[in-house]
């Protein structure tokens, strides 16, 4: 079942066209890797999907429901609820420094659940549920022992794993990663990639912007090569990474010769 359809997304910053009629679709349970040179529009695409940037033109639908269509007036309404279809993991984690690992994960849900009509009567029960879900997520990313640690007490890799758990806490339809390992040294990259890999094995629908070519090739079901704001290649990893390669793709991959493709 098609979970995400993005159609003709265009975005300019001033006179610079960052995204030029980008379209892509994603099946439920699939993971999509977005690769390409820096400045090619990868992050902007994710930010448009999460409504952190407003696209100039384009349409986004999730499970057939149109969330945003630049042609339709009033598309701006209810962006906050629409955002919940997506989760976003940032390059530099951006945990909330004053909260423990567990509270970082549970905070947003605790705030959301207050709007439930039955909140007052079932407060303790609901909060207990959120807490135990949060603990389960920490266990999933291997950080049960760090539930009471504050972000500055965690390594970069651990912070990113908490950030992944935080994004998962709201059960998004599509989990997005914006270069999740680019702020980490190679030693810590592995632990984060392992978590993402295990999510892929559980058929979590994901979009991963990454410079880890080997990882993209092994884990992603589909790969998009984005350059100059346009989709140059789009297909399963075998198609994208194996010869015959386009001239542009060859040039791009030649920078990764040290990685075993």
């Amino acid at each position: 079942m098609t979970i995400l359809e993005a159609h003709n997304i265009t975005k300019s910053f001033g006179s610079a066209k960052v995204l030029n009629r980008v379209s892509l679709s994603l099946e439920e349970g699939e993971s999509l890797a977005i690769i390409g040179p820096s400045g090619g529009g990868k992050s902007t695409l994710l930010r448009c999907l999460n409504f952190l940037e407003r696209m100039d033109t384009g349409r986004i639908s999730v499970r057939g429901e149109v969330l945003y269509d630049s042609e339709v007036p009033g598309s701006e309404d209810g962006l906050r609820e629409k955002r919940l279809h997506f989760g976003l993991v940032f390059q530099s984690f951006h945990l909330f420094p004053q909260y423990t690992a567990l509270k970082n994960i549970t905070l947003a849900r605790e705030l959301l659940v207050k709007k439930q009509p039955s909140y007052k009567d079932r407060k303790t029960e609901l909060l207990e549920q959120i807490r135990s879900d949060g603990l389960a997520l920490l266990e999933q990313v291997g950080l049960s022992a760090k539930k009471d640690a504050y972000p500055h007490e965690l390594s970069g890799g651990q912070q990113q794993r908490v950030a992944i758990a935080r994004a998962l806490a709201l059960n998004p339809d599509i989990l997005c990663f914006d270069e999740p390992t680019s702020a980490l040294d190679p030693e810590l990259t592995g632990e984060v990639l392992r978590v993402i890999r295990s999510l892929a094995e559980k058929n979590t629908t994901m979009i991963i912007v990454t410079h880890e070519m080997q990882f993209a090739r092994q884990v992603a079901d589909k790969v998009v090569f984005l350059d100059d704001g346009a989709v140059l290649e789009y297909g399963v990893p075998q198609e994208v990474f194996e010869p015959p390669l386009s001239e542009r793709m060859q040039r791009f991959l030649s920078h990764y010769t040290d990685q075993n493709l």
């Binding site: 999460n50 952190l52 906050r80 609820e81 955002r83 919940l84 997506f86 989760g87 976003l88 940032f90 530099s92 951006h94 945990l95 909330f96 905070l107 947003a108 959301l112 935080r166 994004a167 709201l170």
Partner: peptide
């Protein structure tokens, strides 16, 4: 980014 982190969490 602190605002954005909160916003994407709804």
């Amino acid at each position: 980014s602190q605002y954005e982190a909160g916003q994407v969490l709804g």
